[in-house]
Design a protein around this nucleic acid. Structure first.
Length: 577
RNA sequence: GGUCCCGUAGCUCAGCUGGAUAGAGCAACGGAUUUCUAAUCCGUAGGUCGCAAGUUCGAAUCUUGCCGGGAUCACCA
């Protein structure tokens, strides 16, 4: 199915038999850009001559023999630079179409992950307000990466960490309290700096009024703070889940920081660190570069993260005995590890990149370096409208929410765009672009290709007066697919499994939308194909045999587009009118 | 100042863990429509891959040092 993998395995396994197990893994097998270099090519000779200090001719002969023995190649050429270029026998690529047609949605799947458990944590936005653009990229990135990892055979757990403890949520409770007083018609002060002035708490204030009347108006904080905090968190988590849901982003597990604290998981991990003599009492280094007025020299408990590769040792327990954010997070990752996740990926905003080495060193310490832990960061998103930046006022709490963007451009467009750049690259998101219905808008471009194919299959059924289904197509004469562009399309489809595997091993979802664009483009070219200035019609009533073979090819294109779109969480459309 | 990320065509970006002549889209210019959906396609033009050394058969890709842009540097999360 994965044709490159197939011949790569054949090549490497045979080479190992000849030269021994310890071969350089950098031997490549690929579709060369330039078709004059053959259907596939390998650098094996160049790599091996360097590695083994043997006669070049001997290696060339060995490599060529391996390919000859398969019986699948028409020609095998060695070019001056040392590449070996191979050309398939005609039927090899064509047979591939048939195999894919039989696999359908399983096409592209692999067992790279071997069913291993992997935990992917994403979003994890604080429950202090609804999601905005900044969260969206990480949300889609994490969701699509999860899809990719599942596609290549990992058992993925999608997880969200709720920071429902600490100072922020207390401020949230106070903000809600003010909304509650306002709902009762009380005169109140402005919601001050550092609190949450957004309108999203107004409704909750009213609900709390309905439940408790004026019971808490003049009562001391201790009496209401727990109730207000919990109902605020619940309210906002519901908002967040609702928004994620309408974006098609889902999580399997929500882990609460408060739970980790209440169940003594945090304290027991703290004690464990202490037993391992990784904690000490000391003074943290003063902040550099920016003058932090709140900083004073005090004694805290620090974790020896420097020992595990961090730049500084980090405070885990403050002078007053309370935890920093870091300590529950260490415990959280120990908890993930204890739940059987020896592989973990966290998706973080670029503004948290300073946190990476700290977290990595902690995980090394608590797992004896037995976990594979990776952090992917997403740079910020710049919203524009017709090239002009969209202004956001953080102060009033009125930033552009995820909900508003979904309402304006739809979740498909957002999802496609959010993973169409490398995570490390900044991203411009232009509203106007996604309302266009042309080439500028990549989502339409891809959907249009898919819809056109569906429409062709339908039209062909009508005009040829036969029911066209996959059984019929599977019996078409595929040897007629010998035009250059047809063979190119087959090769492009054949590279799909490799693209997905690369997206998985590099943890780079953006490879999928780029591939989709390429494949759609190849189809659109084919649609407009001219031979001798004559437009080639795909459905030709006078040549049913050719028509069916072409439709078979296109059916497989549609299967592949649909598969890649499903990885992105986008449904392929059968019609665009 | 330290750390991390980015720097490729006028603009937005790919570039397959070191491969063959560096690629798309947009914008510009010139074409294709009695349409199987032109929401498309074809062609032209556009490059010192930020700069400089190094590593080797071979570098946009790896190393080091500069230059420019961004993020971050807590006892916030």
């Amino acid at each position: 199915m994965n044709i490159l993998r197939k011949y790569h395995d054949i090549l490497v396994n045979n080479l190992k038999e000849i030269y021994g197990e310890s071969l350089n893994p950098n031997i490549s097998l690929e579709f060369p850009k330039d078709p004059s270099m053959g259907d596939i090519s390998t650098n094996a000779v160049m790599i091996l001559t360097k590695e083994l200090s043997l006669e070049k001719d001997k290696i060339i002969k060995d490599v060529s023999d391996i390919f000859y023995k398969t019986g699948d190649f028409k020609t095998i050429n060695v070019v001056g630079s040392g590449f070996i270029n191979l050309i398939f026998k005609d039927n090899i690529l064509q047979d591939l179409i048939l195999k894919i047609l039989n696999k359908k949605e399983i096409f592209g799947h692999s067992d790279l992950g071997k069913g291993k458990k992997i935990n992917i944590e994403y979003v994890s936005a604080n429950p202090t307000g609804p999601l905005h653009v900044g969260h969206t990229r990480g949300a889609v990135f994490g969701d699509v990466l999860s899809n990719i990892m599942e596609f290549v055979g990992f058992k993925v757990c999608r997880e969200y960490y709720i920071n429902d403890s600490g100072e922020q949520v207390n401020k949230l409770a106070h903000s809600t309290y003010i909304r509650y007083l306002q709902a009762l018609g009380e005169e109140t002060k402005e919601i001050e700096d550092g609190f949450y002035p957004g309108e999203y708490l107004i409704e909750l204030g009213k609900t709390l009024k309905d439940q408790h009347n004026d019971k808490f108006v003049n009562s001391p904080e201790e009496e209401w703070i727990d109730i207000f905090r919990e109902s605020s968190i619940e309210h906002i988590m519901n908002l967040i889940k609702e928004d994620l849901n309408s974006l098609g982003v889902h999580h399997d597990v929500f882990t609460s920081e408060k739970y980790l604290l209440d169940s003594n998981i945090v304290s027991s991990v703290y004690e464990e660190l202490d037993r391992k003599e990784l904690l000490y009492e000391g003074i943290s280094t003063s902040p550099k570069g920016n003058n932090n007025e709140e900083w004073t020299e005090r004694k805290h408990i620090l974790f020896k993260s420097k020992k595990f590769g961090d730049d500084e040792d980090r405070v885990v327990k403050k002078h007053d005995g309370s935890w920093t954010y870091f300590m529950p997070d260490i415990a959280y990752h120990k908890n993930k590890f204890d739940r059987g996740f020896s592989q973990m990926i966290n998706i973080l905003g670029a503004d948290h990149s300073g946190y990476i080495s700290r977290m990595k060193s902690a995980i090394k310490a608590i797992t004896q370096d037995k976990a594979i832990f990776d952090i992917k960061t997403c740079q910020l998103v710049k919203l524009t409208r017709g090239g002009q930046p969209v202004k956001m006022s953080k102060r009033s709490g009125n930033f552009i929410t995820l909900k508003e963007i979904i309402e304006e451009v739809g979740s498909d467009a957002i999802r496609f765009m959010m993973v169409s750049r490398k995570g490390e690259a900044k991203l411009d998101f232009d509203f106007e672009l996604f309302k266009k219905e042309n080439n500028d808008n990549p989502v339409f471009y891809v959907q249009y290709a898919h819809a056109r194919i569906c429409s062709l299959l339908k039209n062909a059924s009508n005009s040829l007066k036969i029911d066209i289904d996959d059984n019929l197509l599977a019996n078409s004469n595929l040897s007629l697919l010998n035009n250059k562009i047809e063979l190119d399309i087959i090769k492009l489809i054949a590279s799909y499994p490799k693209i997905v595997e690369q997206a998985a091993s590099h943890k780079e979802p953006h490879r999928v939308p780029f591939y989709l664009r390429d494949l759609s483009s190849a189809f659109h070219q084919y649609w407009n194909l001219k031979i001798n200035d004559e437009r080639v019609k795909i459905v030709d009533e006078n040549d049913i045999e050719s028509t069916l073979s072409r439709l078979t090819l296109l059916r497989v294109v549609a299967i592949t587009i649909s598969s890649a779109l499903s990885i992105l969480g986008i449904k392929a459309l059968n019609e665009l009118r």
